[in-house]
Design a binder for these strands. Structure first.
Length: 611
RNA sequence: GGGGGCGUAGCUCAGCUGGUUAGAGCGCUGCCCUGUCACGGCAGAGGUCGCGGGUUCGAGCCCCGUCGCUCCCGCCA
């Protein structure tokens, strides 16, 4: 097998801003030394990155966070030279000597300090290292389980260190920009009470109140609203959030949000702040998006044109609704779907020839979306007439109208889905994503960001047999005071004042204008089946706070992990979290979660069920 | 909860249609080497083929189960 060439450049490492305080270990960083430093007598410390032992001369590449520096051991410095033979990768050493400029022919142009080397006269081994389970000095991909099991070693590798450094830079910028805009960073409790709506809570048993439990927060939502009532006016937090649900590449049981809330604001105020903060953050992260103001799509528009409420705008193939255009056709699949209240929608895949089996395979591609089938039609060369065995069901006028709606040209492949609106949208969204991937339509450097607004306030939950909040129950409805009866009478018609931020088809944040009136909050609770008593019991503290003069307020939460993942080109947010968990919620490093002593359980008043 | 992919040396992988003693590169150990920078040379060690069961004269390979990793659906306001 061809062995991938190890990265030889350590240029990515950021220059350290100031030298370390000189002590017994070191007085300089490795990676920052310049030719002007040649001649200095200095001491460096770090890990043995690589060793090249010639028997006579010994070369060591020494690594610290700032980068690499070559150490040379000459036989003349006998003690150091002898000790140098015993060095192995990842041993921790401190070395003192004279920094020299290398002879011209010995310069390594691929190394930031490649024109320099430290002529070592004194070597101290601070710690020996076992042979690491994988090489630190290569970029070769290692099985993720192994990396997590040995995460401290993995973090020594350049890609992991680079991602953590980027994460820090982005968060530091966020803090600075929000500080400049008069936001206060306020911490909120991690031990709080369980709330009924939303994700499953992680519970923490109470020792002092036996039989009762804290919950880890799914987000600081309620606390930030209380901070608004408390007159903080502009709050933010880099907040850890916890949700006990099944995991994905972009979901961890604990994750980090930029949580933010503002008083006396409407949608535009929150959006303006986020654009002002996130534009420079994305720029620093190397993600080039259009300058603000960023585009807005309504929820309905996003579903109609892209089939998804988090549309990926990096590629075209917009969906067109052709229901009216084919209603009079002879094609029973279409007309039957329309008669039962469904829709016929299509995308134009462009000049693509797919084999018969590939076309049939599309049915499998959309299978998970609930739609039954995909009907492919090719646009022929002659005047846009359709080819294939479905063509005969459509009149020339119908063909022309559909071609027009899809901007179809000769040779284009059109894909139709006839189904209930939601299933059709989902299927076409899957097809868009499938072809974007399959035909490599997405330029690695291309990014597209958009707001999605105008969400429905509620959606019907078939499993719970009730309306549930699409965003959360504290989101304000887009209703005038005299329209409030709609919350009871026609919940489906009510829009909320929520907004999502979508980058490259990933929901990176969402927020809303909140309810600041206790009575309206009660009515919204009632609409989702939380009666007066339950509302008082679970959310009494919120209702009480709202009753004491709550300013109009709203905010947003942005997924820091997802943002850093996109900025660093990571497939999974695990890559941008120092100590992540596996897809089954385990930490291979610590072994968490783990059983506890019976005594610990007793103290908490807990007993294991069964057994 | 459901579906797909993966699991062979410390790491990354190969292993044909089921057939002799399971291989490679890197790493590791020992020796040699004074200008290397993925140093080089010589020699060597290293395997519960994830685990359990089954089929077979014979299983790394086929079947069943199970565990782990991973992706997706459900779920995640």
């Amino acid at each position: 097998m061809q062995r991938p060439r190890a990265a030889r450049s350590d240029q990515w490492r950021r220059a350290m801003r100031q030298p370390p305080r000189a002590n017994d270990y070191r007085d300089c960083w490795c990676g920052d030394l310049l030719p002007a430093d040649a001649g200095r007598r200095l001491r460096v410390a770090g890990w043995v990155h690589r060793r090249r032992d010639h028997g006579g001369l010994v070369f060591i590449d020494l690594r610290d966070r700032s980068g690499l520096l070559q150490l040379v051991f000459h036989p003349e410095s006998r003690a150091a030279h002898e000790l140098a033979h015993t060095l192995r990768p990842e041993h921790v050493i401190s070395a003192a000597g004279t920094l020299r400029e290398r002879d011209q022919e010995n310069v390594n142009p691929e190394m930031a300090t490649g024109a320099l080397e430290l002529d070592v006269s004194e070597l101290q081994v601070l710690a020996r290292a076992r042979t690491p389970p994988f090489a630190i000095d290569e970029e070769q991909p290692i099985d993720e389980l192994t990396r997590l099991r040995y995460r401290p070693l993995d973090l020594r590798r350049a890609p992991a260190a680079r991602r953590l450094a980027l994460r820090h830079e982005l968060i530091a910028l966020i803090r600075r920009l929000l500080h400049e805009r008069d936001f206060l960073e306020v911490e909120t409790p991690l031990l709080t009470r369980s709330t009924p709506e939303g994700a499953r809570d992680f519970l923490v048993p109470s020792r002092l109140a036996r039989g009762s439990f804290y919950a880890l927060p799914q987000s600081p939502q309620l606390f930030k609203q209380l901070l608004m009532v408390g007159g903080i006016e502009r709050y933010f937090q880099i907040a850890r959030c916890f949700r006990d649900e099944d995991l994905r590449a972009d979901r961890q049981p604990e994750f980090t949000q930029l949580d933010l809330e503002m008083a006396f604001v409407a949608e535009e105020d929150v959006i303006e702040v986020i654009e002002a903060v996130m534009a420079p953050v994305l720029e620093l992260g190397g993600v080039a998006v259009a300058p603000p103001p960023w585009p807005r799509l309504t929820h309905a528009e996003a579903l109609a044109r892209y089939g998804s409420d988090r549309p990926d705008l990096r590629y075209g193939m917009e969906i067109a609704d052709v229901s009216q255009l084919v209603a009079a056709s002879e094609f029973r699949v279409f007309t039957a779907a329309l008669q039962s209240g469904g829709v016929v929608r299509a995308i134009n895949v462009g000049q693509r020839q797919l084999s018969r089996s590939a076309l049939e395979g599309l049915n499998d591609v959309v299978a998970g979306s609930g739609a039954k089938a995909v009907a492919p039609i090719y646009v022929g060369a002659e005047g846009g007439a359709w080819t294939g065995n479905l063509a005969r069901f459509f009149s020339a006028d119908q063909v022309a109208a559909v071609n027009d709606a899809l901007s179809a040209r000769a040779g284009d492949l059109l894909l139709f889905v006839a189904d209930e609106a939601a299933a059709a949208a989902a299927a076409l969204a899957v097809l868009r994503a499938h072809f974007a991937e399959h035909f490599s339509l997405i330029d690695a450097d291309a990014h597209a960001i958009t707001w999605v607004t105008g969400f429905p306030m509620f959606e019907w939950s078939e499993s719970d047999r009730r309306w549930v909040s699409l965003h959360h129950p504290f989101t304000a409805p887009a209703l005038e005071a005299h329209e409030r009866a709609l919350l009871r009478e026609d919940p489906a018609s009510v829009r909320s004042r929520a907004y999502d931020l979508v980058l490259d088809g990933v929901e990176i944040g969402g927020g809303s204008i909140r309810i600041n009136d206790a009575q309206l909050q009660r009515e919204v609770f009632a609409a989702i089946g939380i009666d007066e008593r339950e509302a008082e019991e679970r959310f009494g503290f919120l209702l009480e706070a709202l009753a004491y003069g709550a300013p109009p307020h709203g905010g947003i939460a942005l997924g820091i992990d997802r943002i850093v993942a996109i900025c660093s080109g990571s497939e999974s947010i695990r890559e941008v979290i120092a100590f992540p968990k596996t897809a089954s919620g385990l930490d291979p490093l610590t072994g968490a979660p783990a059983p506890v002593d019976a005594a610990q359980l007793r103290e908490l008043g807990l007993r294991q069920a069964g057994a």
